[in-house]
Design a protein around this nucleic acid. Structure first.
Lengths: 378, 378
DNA sequence: TTATTTAATTTAGCAAATGAAATAATTTAT
DNA sequence: ATAAATTATTTCATTTGCTAAATTAAATAA
């Protein structure tokens, strides 16, 4: 349908906002003749439209923008209970969202997802762009391309081909991805890191997950497990707790949400993260210690990521309460202390809140990425 | 000069050995017509030649191979004193090698390198292929493309443009690269890991260096420092030594060659790695402990690399004496213990010797890679 | 010998991109 | 107001890199 040329143009417009034809030719190293032709076709297909004119010396440049109604995408997160479902446009704006109970039975889950898709289709005849794809997020391992869930502990699935099944049921392209990977694609496509060639993302919730964009592409690793960070051996000296992986002192046993809540409970503190953060802010010593230790542990792990991979930025997404807490300060301190001092340059650390919706939005970004970029690089 | 098509063919032949035209068409997803034309041009340029015929059912296939005299390459290692210089063919075979004292004065160093190149040119009129490029290796940070040495502690250089300077003096393309990066390109092009999409390499000598091939490409990281592993915080619990980076307990203070020799000296053992390994083999407790500790420390760091990046293989290059020692066994054990158990699959760990020559050969591979592959992927 | 099979080449042609010239829409200078 | 300059975009003839289909080449099997 669309050629690489089309996708390359969409890629630039999605990432850097409206550009003129001449800009595009320069950015993409294409001739102006080619850009004219490619843009004409994209306008005919109602993917792009002409925006305001920018006046300079000579003939004004006509800016070209990605239409909000070029297409729409459904994102489904099976990452936790309840499942979240969103409908987005190509810019990542959420137009509709709801939840439904997570069903672990494969057939029932497929039926529920197909039903949700049908509901959305019924409710949205054509006010926004035509539905162009579905993304599904699971916590677990997904095969690189065949869109099969190889293993998921939360769902209890092994080698389940939800991708092809849901595609058949809905008649739409379906993309399945691991939670951290979906989150980083969402950050790349819908977030603020689209211009970066290399960046990493780590999220902290029930577990700790990580993913890397390397050379503009998601780095899956050889068996799809790249970005795994939760079992970094971090607490050798401290009272190392046993981890579900069999070792002791893994990052997850110190810095994941359940670990923080568990430590708080053992210290007689309330079992709610908001309250714990508040106590720490008021100076309560146990709360401070627990959050400080968790932040430091994650910081040390991130310093390793920085040394090994040297990304331009690491995005850390965590509970909104933690974003401005001791946890965050300890994290930054630990990174400062453990990263080899560099004259010119420092990996940027960006902390932001993680909302349950974000996984579903990430899921939608998978479908959007495919629609906009095809298999293109740049 | 050569198109992407040519380079893609050379890439396959270099990596997988001789192939028929039909094989190439299948491997590269090209039409047989294209392969015929591209191969004809490469044969006319004396890059390829026809080899033996392989008989099957129908018409026999003519195998095509990369000519040993297609071109030759000079590799210069300024990684340590003395500097090593090699002359190789496109398969990485070393045809001539020698050393010269390392000079840290920039002008003197350039003059020495240019002189060495001229000597080689004089001594080798045209018995092997025409000289097609020069690679230079330094211990330090090199800018991504402009071939400028940004910083090197051993040489005391900052922002020195040896690449362009040497290119001007010799009239040949020059490629400058960091030591670990050159080593991994050498492994990819001249070694046994050419078919792998993702692998990592770590070497242990005066320091510890690492590099990653991701998606067939060298991953330099945003400021060229990717692969940095020597300052992983590893020895928190043990008697952590101060490191030149300012922290304590870095991997380098435990597992690098000087660290091992230093620990041995403090225990009253001889200051030679061969003797230390021999003592350990005989069961001498201090020697065993020192090597075991060093191997374990490196193993723990590598387990982190495996979790974060999930490469298909990690190549570890170290002193020949260490390859079959307690160090190696401890390293493998530590990796086994710390990597999250995987059902189907395990990152392969390959230990091999590191000879002083290898950096120079790696340097030559940089030039060879450019000659053979251009800027191509696959 | 003849049919079959696989490899390689030829041929005509397409799709994407290009360079150079032409056209369009402005601002600045006169 | 008009002409000159400037920059954006389009047109058009052409090149580049590839392909599909038919053809030729060189072998084996019957």
């Amino acid at each position: 349908m669309f050629s690489t040329g089309h996708h390359r143009i969409l890629s630039v417009l999605s990432r850097s906002g409206p550009q003129s034809r001449t800009d595009l030719a320069r950015i993409l190293n294409l001739s102006k003749a080619s850009v004219t032709a490619l843009v004409r076709e994209l306008i005919e297909q109602n993917i792009l439209d002409e925006r305001e004119r920018v006046f300079g010396f000579g003939r004004p440049a006509v800016m070209l923008g990605l239409r909000q109604d070029a297409a729409s995408f459904i994102g489904i997160s099976l990452q936790a209970d309840p499942a979240h479902i969103v409908l987005t446009d190509p810019h990542g704006k959420v137009h509709r969202q709801f939840t439904m109970p997570l069903v672990t039975d494969v057939e029932a889950c497929l039926a529920a997802m197909a039903g949700a898709v049908q509901d959305i289709r019924d409710a949205y005849p054509d006010t926004i762009g035509a539905l162009a794809g579905i993304g599904v997020v699971i916590a677990g391992i997904v095969s690189g391309n065949s869109q099969i869930c190889l293993a998921s502990a939360t769902l209890g699935w092994t080698d389940v081909d939800i991708g092809p099944r849901l595609a058949e049921m809905t008649g739409l392209p379906v993309f399945v991805e691991n939670d951290a990977n979906a989150l980083i694609i969402g950050e790349q496509l819908f977030g603020n890191s689209g211009e970066l060639d290399d960046f990493s993302l780590v999220f902290v919730s029930e577990g700790i997950g990580g993913a890397h964009i390397i050379n503009r592409h998601l780095h899956r690793g050889h068996h799809g497990g790249a970005g795994e960070i939760s079992h970094s051996p971090i607490a050798i000296d401290l009272e190392a707790l046993p981890c579900r992986c069999g070792n002791r002192g893994c990052l997850e046993t110190v810095a994941a949400l359940p670990a923080i809540l568990g430590a708080a409970r053992r210290s007689g503190l309330p079992g709610d993260i908001g309250q714990i953060v508040e106590l720490a802010t008021e100076g309560q010593p146990e709360a401070l210690a627990i959050l400080h230790r968790a932040g430091t542990a994650l910081g040390v792990s991130l310093s390793q990521v920085i040394q090994f991979i040297d990304p331009l930025r690491i995005v850390v997404r965590l509970d909104p309460h933690l974003v401005e807490s001791v946890f965050a300060r300890a994290l930054k301190q630990a990174v400062e202390a453990h990263v080899l001092r560099r004259e010119s340059y420092q990996t940027e650390l960006v902390l932001g809140p993680l909302y349950p919706n974000d996984f579903a939005t990430g899921a939608a970004s998978l479908a959007a990425q495919h629609f906009l970029f095809g298999n293109t690089s740049l």
